[in-house]
Nucleic acid binder design. Structure first.
Lengths: 184, 184
DNA sequence: ACCAAGTTTGACCAATTAGTCAAGTAAGTT
DNA sequence: AACTTACTTGACTAATTGGTCAAACTTGGT
């Protein structure tokens, strides 16, 4: 039974609620209620709601991505590893989609600071896909372009699942994508 | 100088603002201010904010999609036509992304009625891509799966452009996708 | 002109929003 | 014990939220 710092309680609750409801639809009071804290504690630690969001992006979303793909450059068959990671059952929550994607949609056009933080994570994501292509016989430029497309397809697949509120489209699209990759 | 009905003024303003800011971030007062109308007019014509959203989805987003792709089953080279439509400069606003996608992200997990209306449009979108594949030498099942993947890739490309707040990633990904399609 | 239906006006309401702050408590340092 | 710093409490504010409604205005039919 380790005790969780006040800061972590806030960032955890904010992460969860921003993911499930979106940034605008989550109030500070919602976060505090979920975390079991009072208002002053939050404003003692953060300048405001936006700073909480930046912490969520940098300390949770970026971190989770790193945890998910950190082994990809040591693994034997990285493309297969990637496919397996994507299709493993708890890979993502089809109902709420991709935490990164969700925030990009909602926030990137609206706030430059947030957009910058999100773009950094997005670039990391593309980089992991680039590494997954290291065995492929093509130039680095081509790998980069292909990785970009793969990320787009997977993110689009998550969105398709969200539109249908059903995981099936996601699986179908990812399988189609990898069927494709084998041909090239 | 034709005069626009009150209803159309509301739906137009709502469509624009929902697209630019999102549903939750747009207040009824914002819509009314943009439309130059008073509160009672809106509540005379609509039950509430959600009904305005449903009108936007069914009368604007679905309609615009239809307008964009209605010629695709008569055109000579439908795949090339699709590519051209996607890459034509005013095809979409990279800053705000895809109106359909945006609403799916924000609303589908939260409201079943809205999710249903959005899914219908999403299925139409996939159907247009399916038609664009009519010349391809494969079974209808394969075409359907491929069309699904193409939609996902294009939607993901829009999201990549939104993340970067720059149209370039979108163009790159769409080009990569069609380069791919030629190989198969 | 008269009437009834459709439409518009804008003040009003209760609830919620992000953010403030003076007062209190806990925890370490000497 | 005395003192200082870090943290927590929760009442408060000003603004905004979606929604209501009685009164006023248009409009078209007779």
């Amino acid at each position: 039974m380790k005790k969780i710092s006040t800061r972590d309680k806030i960032v955890n609750s904010a992460h969860k609620l921003f993911y499930e409801r979106g940034y605008n639809a989550t109030s500070i009071d919602d976060i505090l209620k979920d975390a079991g804290l009072n208002k002053g504690s939050l404003y003692h630690l953060f300048k405001g709601k936006k700073e909480v969001l930046l912490a969520v992006i940098e300390e949770r979303i970026a971190y989770n991505l790193k945890q998910k793909y950190k082994e990809i450059d040591t693994v034997e068959n990285p493309l297969q590893y990637l496919q397996h990671k994507l299709l493993s059952t708890d890979s993502f929550d089809f109902k709420h989609g991709c935490a990164l994607n969700n925030l990009v949609q909602e926030m990137s056009p609206v706030d430059a600071d947030v957009a910058k933080a999100l773009l950094k994570v997005y670039n990391d994501l593309e980089h992991y896909y680039f590494i997954a292509l290291r065995e492929a016989s093509m130039s680095d430029e081509e790998k980069k372009a292909l990785a970009k497309m793969m990320v787009a397809t997977v993110e689009g697949a998550i969105m398709a699942a969200k539109a249908a509120q059903d995981k099936a489209p996601f699986i179908q699209i990812v399988e189609q994508l990898f069927k494709f990759l084998l041909k090239v």
